[in-house]
Simulated scan of single mutants.
Amino acid sequence: MSSSRKFAAALLGLAVLGPAWAQQAATAPAYPGIGRTATKAEIAAWDIDVRPDFKGLPKGSGSVNLGQEVWEAKCASCHGIFGESNEVFSPLVGGTTAEDIKAGRVARLNDTTFPGRTTLMKVATLSTLWDYINRAMPWNAPKSLKTDEVYAVTAYLLSLGGIVPEDFTLSDANIADVQKRMPNRNGMTTAHAMWPGKSLGKAAPPDVKATACMRDCDTEPKVASLLPDFARNNNGNLAEQQRLVGPQRGIDTTRPAGTRRDGPISIAATPAPAVTASPTVTPAQAPATGNVAAALALIKKNSCTACHGMDQKLVGPGFKQIAAKHGSRSDAEAYLASRIKSGGQGVWGPIPMPAQALPDADLKTIAAWLAAGAASR
């Protein structure tokens, strides 16, 4: 075979094998032997974002009335019955007017005398609201709401802001029309110079213009906080408390200022004032170790620890605080089980606790554990 024919045959072979090689290269893992290609089902479970043009929005609908029922059961404990919030989170509703809905810009965002900024004042795209509720709410059980419940909760929130009427049903078919009534729909800008060039909008100057100091420079400032000695341990040991935002730990306030935190924490080093001490519960009979372990597993499984600390109040009272208040009752177990099952508010403040649908056996285990002092081990 001539050299020209050999070359032509080689080209033909490459043309035939090329697609197969490309397909193999596309499906082969980047690091052989490490991991595997995600399945379609795995990708679908994560691919739930909804774009501002509502691409990715699932079909469904939900009424304001249904949204109120879901809200009161799963949302009001943190955000208030009417979205007015409480001492836990900022208000969701308020600060918008009918004129804002017409103009698409919330006037009070530029009013320095207005006391706060609510969610409906700031959010520009309805898809953001729907998407966040769908993926992150309620905070102790994210992604647990059904699609129609997400539509319903969103509709209820919009009705509280006067964006839709009280008899409205929000759906994938009309959500784009509702977007046209968002109070701050024209208040968002993409010309923020996060990237060089035109970015996502018009070209804009950089957010920061810095000129390096070469001489007679100011000393670097140091930012610090401190507690006066007389108040150092007034609210309990900060090192033992879980902060509400993030896994941040405070300093060991049982030790004098400047002392390194080495070795075990000693509460006796700087005793807390007597006014902060909780009454001691002395149960008639401490629960068996197995019952304590079972109770601790149940409160973790049912996300009770999202709202209740072991010793300190988070959203609701700490477990030991509950034990101290009710453990001495003659009907403590029955009373605590009924309170967990029915929910309610007023005993520990204005924040309501939703009713908990737990099996009777689980209720009894948790109630017995609380009545016996809420042991942590």
Rank of each mutant, 00 (worst) to 15 (best):
R215N: 10
A374Q: 02
S3E: 14
S278H: 08
F54C: 15
C307T: 07
T253D: 10
A203L: 12
L158H: 00
P317Q: 11
E240Y: 00
C78E: 08
A124R: 01
R108V: 06
A10V: 03
A374I: 08
G62A: 10
A294G: 03
N302L: 14
Q345G: 04
G67E: 07
S328P: 05
I43H: 06
G161E: 03
G104W: 02
D362W: 04
D218P: 05
G318S: 07
V164F: 03
V275T: 03
V70M: 05
D111G: 11
T254G: 10
A295P: 04
G236H: 11
A141Y: 01
P183W: 09
K222C: 13
T211S: 14
V347H: 01
K313L: 15
A203F: 12
A375H: 01
N233A: 13
T113Y: 08
A306V: 15
A375G: 10
Q312H: 09
T305K: 00
A371L: 05
A334Q: 12
P221K: 04
S3D: 12
D172K: 03
W348T: 13
S77I: 08
Q312G: 09
P206R: 02
G349Q: 04
L160C: 01
D360A: 09
V153I: 15
S85E: 08
H326A: 06
G309D: 04
D229V: 14
K300Y: 05
P228A: 11
A367H: 02
L158K: 00
P32K: 02
R243L: 15
G116C: 09
D218E: 15
L14Q: 05
D177A: 10
S342V: 15
N86F: 11
K222L: 15
V70G: 03
L244T: 07
E220L: 14
A136G: 03
L200E: 14
